[in-house]
Simulated scan of single mutants.
Amino acid sequence: MADHSINGKTALIAGGAKNLGGLLARDLAAHGARGVAIHYNSAATKAAADETVAAIKATGAAAHAFSGDLTSAANVEKLFADAKAALGSIDIAVNTVGKVLKKPFVEITEAEYDEMSAVNSKSAFFFLREAGRHVSDNGKVCTLVTSLLGAFTPFYAAYAGTKAPVEHFTRAAAKEFGARGISVTAIGPGPMDTPFFYPAEGADAVAYHKTASALSAFSRTGLTDIEDIVPYIRFLVSDGWWMTGQTILVNGGYTTK
């Protein structure tokens, strides 16, 4: 039987410099991963990536940081090739990349739609493609989406709408990669307490989101905390391998399907 533990495995985390991706990278190393490759988008996040690499190395694991704009398929190809060369293999691949836009449907410009589509859909598609080419047999792949996929709400057409295709990408990849023992999942957190959340929301909306989940009163912030999501991803890329092709909403009762 295949070994589904994290111990001794390698991982590639897209968007792994800080916030949820950075915490996940540290967590996998703390749970025995022998090496972690961190992707960051640009020079603006290099310092955070270097800090995460240092934290991983302090656990005794190998760590490497790679920069690139993943809206380019060629850059996704290079990321996987470089990570595999550095680590020797890629057993776990997690894509946390995403961009939020909250705006009335009739005000969304073509340029805004194109950017949202590139970041949320195109990059996810090619990340999954390269995962299918490079992840080891019996490996694990997970993509971050959003709990808004289970919501009936205005103003997020471009955000949730460009994350929605990832559900089908996940199903198709799971069917195609399953013959090699690879499980493929997507996880949709609720509104998360990260620097990406607050600029997109007004004060009234923030107050609403902090009380919208059934378990809000028991959350550190009222929102979905990144510490609440990491254990679910860790489970999906280890003992939870039998779940595949699924999109799981993890949000304390914010939305459901």
Rank of each mutant, 00 (worst) to 15 (best):
A73S: 13
E115C: 00
K102D: 13
V166G: 09
A74D: 13
E201A: 14
G22E: 11
R180G: 10
A160R: 00
K46G: 10
V36T: 13
D137T: 02
A62Q: 15
D193I: 02
N41T: 06
I229T: 09
L70I: 09
G253I: 01
T185H: 06
G139W: 06
F105G: 06
A63W: 08
D137L: 01
D225A: 05
F169C: 10
Q246E: 05
V141L: 05
G88H: 03
E107K: 01
T45F: 10
G190V: 09
L12W: 04
T59L: 05
F218P: 06
K140Q: 09
F235R: 12
F125D: 13
F196L: 09
A2T: 13
D193W: 03
D239F: 11
K84D: 14
A214E: 10
D27E: 01
Y113D: 04
D225W: 00
L128H: 00
A86I: 13
H168S: 10
V230C: 07
V106H: 15
A157R: 03
N138K: 10
P189D: 05
S5D: 06
L24M: 11
K9W: 02
G222V: 01
S117D: 07
A14H: 00
A58C: 09
G35W: 08
E110D: 14
L149K: 09
E115V: 02
Y113A: 05
L249E: 04
G60D: 05
L149S: 10
I226V: 12
P199H: 13
G188I: 03
S117W: 10
K18H: 03
R26Y: 02
A160P: 02
D225Y: 01
S117I: 03
F127C: 03
A58Y: 07
D193M: 05
A203R: 12
I90D: 11
N120F: 03
F155V: 11
N7V: 06
V76P: 05
P104I: 12
A33W: 04
A124Y: 05
G88I: 04
P189F: 03
S67A: 14
K99W: 02
A54F: 08
I56E: 15
V94P: 02
V145R: 00
P191N: 13
A173M: 13
T162Q: 14
N75Y: 11
A58L: 08
G222N: 00
P154M: 13
I187E: 00
F218H: 15
K18V: 02
A65D: 08
G98P: 02
V141D: 04
H39N: 15
S121N: 11
H64P: 07
G32M: 01
A173I: 10
H39W: 07
V100K: 00
F155H: 15
I108M: 08
A61S: 10
G188M: 04
D193L: 02
T247Y: 03
A49Y: 04
I38H: 12
A160K: 01
E201G: 08
G21F: 00
E167S: 12
D225K: 01
V206D: 14
I92C: 14
K99R: 12
G15W: 01
A157L: 10
N75E: 15
I6A: 06
F125P: 10
R180T: 09
K57C: 05
N251S: 06
L87I: 11
V106P: 10
V237A: 11
A179V: 09
I6G: 04
L23D: 07
G161E: 07
T170A: 12
G161A: 11
R171G: 02
F218M: 15
T59D: 05
A151D: 15
A43N: 04
A173C: 12
R129D: 10
G202A: 04
E107F: 01
